[in-house]
Design a protein around this nucleic acid. Structure first.
Lengths: 173, 173
DNA sequence: TATCTTTGCAAGTGATTACTCACTTTTTAA
DNA sequence: TTAAAAAGTGAGTAATCACTTGCAAAGATA
């Protein structure tokens, strides 16, 4: 990975996240990265290939974060870890998650690769805690995370600390 | 409002919702509507004007739905009405809401015109019910609605009925 | 019926799109 | 040291973009 290649990925991630993938031309990416437009197509097959590279880079960074949640034993610890995810979105990961959430709406079909493993972890935790419908509870947790992350990425409400508190209280965490 | 004008609005709404506003050209809208491309610019100032017309049309339809929620007296009735909104997205309104939710991510700044009145209604209801932090509870309700609507529009989980049930139980509704 | 307005279409416009190509510069390695 | 490979550039390409224009058909009003 050369220095200019990283510049391209960095600039593209920021622009795609802020303006939208289709709204940003490869010309704009190149100028933001301080690079000739042709170089983008030397390193990536096409514009979509650039997007895929951005996705994979972010996935790899998110992998370790996701993995650490499975390790825990106490089901409440697990739920705490899952629910805390939207409150701890790293400054550096902000653009990545914003792009991912935006892309969901123009994809032809929903990608369950991220949510499916998390749903299972949550369902197991609720089962261990004796909830009557762990499946529905897990689904609700995923929905909550979606809403929380959206608020954090888009609206940035000032009282998120209080929201977190009342939410944790509801689940007795 | 002429017949072809309605065709344009209908086709544009569907395409914008499914593929994204920037990804759909006026040419595609015209062909989907069975109309010459020039006619779009006869009826609407430009592509953005077409989008604004779609927005306003949907707003007018949503107005009555939103208005009926303020009328109720019992705070639990109000919360029931608010929380039930994502579960009752009309088949005809599906494209509209999908477009609205998608557009949020490429707007320069978040539009609070929709959420602000709903937050106040929810906060008042929670206050009347004696909740300790009505503001945080209202924020959480808005976040929940966002997540629920996203699930309904994008993932369409099979166990939404059970999710609704366990959610209403949490709020004792 | 005659005239004016609205509705509609086909064929344009320049600008921008993703992408290619011929070429030079830099890096790698034997 | 030298030759091959990789990195990088800048000027192209055809296609598509949002939008305009000139003119015909249809409706409304008198």
């Amino acid at each position: 990975m050369t220095e200019k290649q990283e510049k391209i990925l960095e600039a593209a991630l920021k622009l795609f996240a802020e303006k939208g993938y289709t709204a940003v031309s490869t010309n704009k990416v190149a100028r933001a990265a301080g690079v000739s437009e042709g170089l983008i197509f030397r390193h990536f097959a096409n514009k979509e290939g650039l997007l895929e590279a951005i996705k994979q880079q972010g996935m790899e960074r998110a992998q370790s974060l996701l993995g650490s949640m499975v390790m825990r034993e106490d089901p409440k610890d697990i739920l705490r870890g899952i629910l805390d995810f939207p409150f701890n979105i790293d400054k550096e990961e902000y653009h990545y998650w914003r792009l991912m959430y935006a892309l969901k709406w123009q994809a032809d079909e929903y990608d369950h690769s991220m949510s499916h493993p998390m749903r299972k972890i949550a369902a197991d935790a609720f089962k261990n805690l004796g909830y009557s419908d762990p499946g529905a509870e897990a689904e609700l947790i995923l929905i909550l995370i979606d809403g929380l992350a959206t608020a954090e990425l888009l609206r940035k409400p000032e009282n998120m600390k209080a929201v977190r508190q009342s939410l944790f209280k509801k689940y007795d965490l």
